[in-house]
Design a protein around this nucleic acid. Structure first.
Lengths: 345, 345
DNA sequence: TTGTAAGCGTTATCAG
DNA sequence: CTGATAACGCTTACAA
């Protein structure tokens, strides 16, 4: 498959490459109707397709951005990706998606590769463990925005949920309905995963603020695969809380699985609120009360901030954006201690 | 932000660009220990990063493939994308993801753009409406594989579910358990969306084969937003079937929503089987009997076939791969007409 | 209004 | 073992 190049078109149309180039870049203002047509015909005839790689080399811009996610199967990821893709589409950008699998090594390698490929900017759901690499990028003024997680000390744009508020929303809702023994389910808090810390800490503080007991046993913070065990142990000992706050969709799934396996009734025996408005929340029985992240808005904002940086690399003031969660009241948490008839919610 | 190039490294190391190039491509066989070290040091010192764009221009290969999906929020898409990404990762390829939104125009534009960007191949979840464009690619021997849907007349690799079998699996399961009035829920059958046709037709044929009545009213084939209405109309008229086959995750959600709104009992009043093993199938009440697509295997296969084509463009025999669905028996369809105690499944 | 020629940062082909 | 030198396909001054 002989690639046809600009030179071929030029030859056929009897003009020079530069004229063809002008044509392609729609600068036909100073071009005779005549030549324009000849070029158009030549292009048509040869089935010419410009080679953007060559152009990129010259222009030093690829109209491509990279997105590195740490968990491509996470619901938040999918939705944010969707928003980013859409925003890019509008501006003629393309998106290279890479999955770091929450492995800092992989993440580092991807950043390097993507930059070698000359992407115009990077949106990262950071593992949090490559502060040096991130820092280098901001020093070089390479367009960068973090999303979902941020990295302390690295002065870059970050798009985050107001995690503390999300936790408070859950606790307050429970508290106002008479729940006292409230637990949280999360992966282990580790210092470089900020949202996790904020959600767990926010939960603790909200509890304190409401004057509710803080019981260590009710902090189920262990890796996803062990959550079942932990929950089972509590249950067996008869010390299960009355309400549970699941800090994301993955932990929610574990909680639901546990509940199902043990024939526990929601919300009567155990009330549930989770962050992330899972797609089946409204068809589940009972319907699930959740705290939604504005995923679409977040993705869009991330893209916008990136474009801003790309447009004027120099004086960009990095900023942290906290998005407010939305409380979606459904049926998995209700007034406590009220006898009601059995109903489908 | 002066980009440091190979020339800079060469100068600092006191060698020529070609030598540096050799070094970068790990051809140090014929290189003195001495120069190698000098180059390494120079690279280190300058923080040199190769520019892959330049290399691509020369080598005519970008180590990048494009994936065009028609619905980025569909569960199948997410999972297949994950598999593709992983396969690419292993071979050092990158993936540009684009969403055609099932709009042929957009799809066409994307194909063009991506090819202009010199991607080494394309994996497409086709809208089905751009036969001419697809055809041109196969004629040019441009690496291409279709997934999920295929395009009649276009001789390209296609990775598909055995849709007929999937439908038969559902019908047989229902039939063997005494269900007679079985319906299907799907978007409208249109000739260019093959899996839809195959699933609906497969359903019809399986019904015939089992000697079950084929009732027009039980073919609920309308756009997603109208499914509720359609279902409601049937329900109001008292002619709701005993069992429903949902042809994908999106239609399943509609069915579940309807059921929930009308307090219908699964499986006693209405049994359900769907294609796509939704993530909440095992925590739903009752648990959901589904027909899973081997999404991961399909994505992997798609990538493999594409790499095969990329490796030896010339003699590639296009092939259609039919993947067998897996029946996952859970609780949303049971023996019919048997009184059982109420149980949590 | 159009052509010439010099890059862009690599790789590849040959000499040396 | 190393170095010139010519591509790769396009853009962009600068001429004409």
């Amino acid at each position: 498959m002989k690639k046809v190049t600009m030179a071929d078109v030029a030859k056929l149309a009897n003009v020079s490459k530069s004229t063809v180039s002008q044509y392609l870049n729609k600068r036909y203002e100073y071009m005779s109707e005549e030549t324009r047509k000849r070029i158009a015909r030549a292009i048509e005839e040869l089935g010419y397709q410009p080679n953007i790689i060559a152009r990129s080399l010259k222009q030093k811009t690829t109209m491509t951005i990279g997105v590195i996610v740490f968990n491509i199967l996470h619901m938040l990821t999918t939705q944010v990706l969707h928003a980013i893709e859409e925003a890019c589409q509008e501006r003629g950008f393309h998106v290279i998606v890479s999955n770091s699998d929450d492995d800092p090594e992989k993440e580092r390698k991807y950043i390097e590769m993507l930059r070698a490929k000359q992407v115009d900017g990077l949106i990262i759901f950071p593992t949090g463990k490559n502060a040096d690499v991130y820092q280098k990028m901001v020093e070089e003024r390479f367009p960068l925005v973090f999303i979902d997680r941020m990295v302390p000390g690295v002065k870059a744009d970050a798009i985050l949920l107001d995690n503390q508020k999300a936790a408070a929303l859950a606790v307050e809702y429970f508290a106002e309905r008479g729940y006292k023994r409230i637990g949280v389910v999360a992966p282990p808090p580790v210092s470089h995963i900020i949202p996790r810390m904020e959600r767990i800490e926010g939960f603790r503080q909200a509890l304190a603020k409401k004057g509710l007991p803080i019981v260590d046993d009710y902090f189920i913070t262990t890796e996803i695969p062990y959550i079942q065990n932990e929950l089972a142990r509590l249950f067996a000992s008869g010390r299960l809380p009355e309400a549970l706050f699941a800090i994301n969709d993955l932990t929610l799934m574990e909680v639901l699985y546990f509940i199902k396996g043990n024939h526990i009734k929601i919300p009567d025996e155990l009330a549930i609120i989770s962050i992330d408005d899972v797609p089946f929340a409204h068809v589940y029985t009972p319907t699930l009360t959740t705290i939604a992240q504005p995923t679409f808005a977040m993705g869009k904002k991330a893209a916008e901030r990136l474009f801003l940086q790309i447009a004027k690399k120099s004086e960009h003031q990095p900023q942290i954006f906290r998005f407010s969660p939305t409380f979606i009241e459904r049926g998995s948490a209700k007034e406590k201690n009220v006898i009601r008839k059995r109903e489908v919610t």
